[in-house]
Amino acid sequence: MTKRNLLLLALLLAVACVLPFIVSDYRTFQLTLVLVYATALLGLNILTGYNGQISLGHGAFYALGAYCAAILMDQAGAPYWATVPAAGAVCLVAGFLFGLPALRLEGLYLALATFALGVAMPQLLKYDHLAKWTGGVQGIVIPKPEAPFGLPLNADQWLYFFTLAVTIVMFVLAWNLLRGRIGRALVAIRDQHIAAEAMGINSAIYKSAAFGVSAMYTGVAGALSAIAIQYVAPDSFGIFVSIVFLVGIVVGGLASISGALYGALFIQFVPNIADEISKAAPWAIFGIFMIGFVYLMPTGVAGATRLLLAKRRKSP
């Protein structure tokens, strides 16, 4: 990392810390959701962007994480902060297990299988025999956490900082994971899996592990979202959540860590603006942006910024 990048990051962090004190509580809540989405998108990007496995069902892992958090709080009385790593662990295992059969599926077929997972998830959550824990159609309501240690923050601000801390940890972990040997192996498998195997990379292990780690990120994001929204219900985790994530990584930029942040800002704020036109408008805009980005800007916002910066550096 260059000195300039570090400086930029510090600046970004400073802005992130100051923001909740200058904007309204509702905006703070929205920013919390941006951080949640950024974590989820980072997870999907590890799988789809870096490893080239298409998932159209990450909403299912998001739901799993959210329900883990909610059930742990509702049934076991666990403190909210403890549910986040628990949800991550559950999703890590679930993702790894789903990743094992997914090994045999490539490209389109994997997209199909995960699409089916995404569509079927709300039904599974509504299932009668699980209703004892999941609350069936009604879902689960969670109490809002207050700031601990007598910190002079209101609940929204505290939630924001809690989410910010988790998000930073997750981003640093991802950065560390992806810049080294493992990250290169993932990219190698994406670009030329036969050559990668010939170089001694165990493609099966890496691919299912990527699935697990990706699901863990999304699960952590799900748990954070459940805590932030204080409510989980089956119908908020339909196939459209998975599609929103896909929009996020395409717009933000595939195989890019900063892209997750751009994508999160996009999926949080663009629908808000579009909503004023019509209820259906956000989706139409999502669709048009997806096609537009695939045609015109396949590397997303992150790739475009990189290109711009490189051009500016060349011509003084």
């Binding site: 789809t48 080239g52 298409i54 159209l56 490209g107 389109l108 997209a111 599609i243 896909l246 395409v250 595939l254 019509s278 209820k279 259906a280 408008a281 956000p282 989706w283 139409a284 999502f286 669709g287 048009i288 997806m290 096609i291 695939v294 045609y295 396949p298």
Partner: peptide, 27 residues
């Protein structure tokens, strides 16, 4: 235009089409 593009691009375009048709009908 995406005939020879990577699978991911094609899947994204299909999903975009799904979303656009769905929301247009809703609209």
């Amino acid at each position: 235009p995406v005939e020879d593009a990577p699978v991911l691009a094609v899947v994204v375009v299909f999903i975009a089409l799904l979303v656009i048709l769905n929301s247009t009908a809703g609209w």
